[in-house]
């Protein structure tokens, strides 16, 4: 395991904020009180975790289902290993792609090595996006699928034990 990216105080800040900030005038002071450090230190550490990539963003986390984004398609692509980074960057740059990752194949059942999550108000919208993505692949993809989610079986934020 590499050097821990979080020290004990960082971890306590993660635990204190993983369910969201309190909606009060000074939310970081509320965190500071729980962690036992001063308010400015909470903000300094959140900024540092963001700079290191531990925190991807801080803001309002919308519930896409509740907002009418009913179609959630996990698009998966089988592309040559030596092109995966280049193609991944292309797909990841599209506004409607929320996550884009290289993952290992699991042959013979699972030949796909590039994953891109697409959200849309309905399946027709997602299909339109997928057609555009396929066009960006310049004929090098060897196949793709769209796996729509039919049910959320569990969804919680990241859990770090206190």
């Amino acid at each position: 395991m590499s050097t821990p990216v979080l020290d004990d105080i960082d971890r306590r800040i993660v635990v204190a904020t993983q369910d969201g900030l309190e909606l009060v005038r000074e939310p970081y002071r509320a965190v500071a009180r729980r962690v036992g450090i001063d308010e400015a230190e909470v903000r300094r550490r959140l900024a540092a975790m963001q700079a290191r990539g531990v925190i991807r963003r801080i803001g309002a986390v919308p519930n896409h289902y509740a907002l009418g984004y009913l179609a959630n398609g996990m698009t998966v692509w089988d592309v040559p290993d030596d092109r995966v980074r280049e193609l991944g960057r292309r797909l990841g740059g599209l506004g409607f792609v929320s996550h884009c990752y290289h993952r290992p194949r699991h042959l013979p059942d699972w030949p796909f090595n590039l994953f891109a999550m697409v959200h849309g108000r309905d399946r027709a919208t997602v299909q339109g996006h997928v057609a555009g993505m396929a066009a960006l692949m310049e004929d090098v993809e060897r196949g793709h699928r769209v796996l729509y989610s039919t049910r959320i079986l569990k969804k919680t934020g990241l859990r770090l034990a206190a």
């Binding site: 904020t17 369910d19 969201g20 925190i55 963003r57 986390v61 934020g157």
Partner: peptide
């Protein structure tokens, strides 16, 4: 409509 306001780790 909003799951939470806070950090995405």
């Amino acid at each position: 409509m909003v799951s939470r306001v806070g950090a995405v780790f």
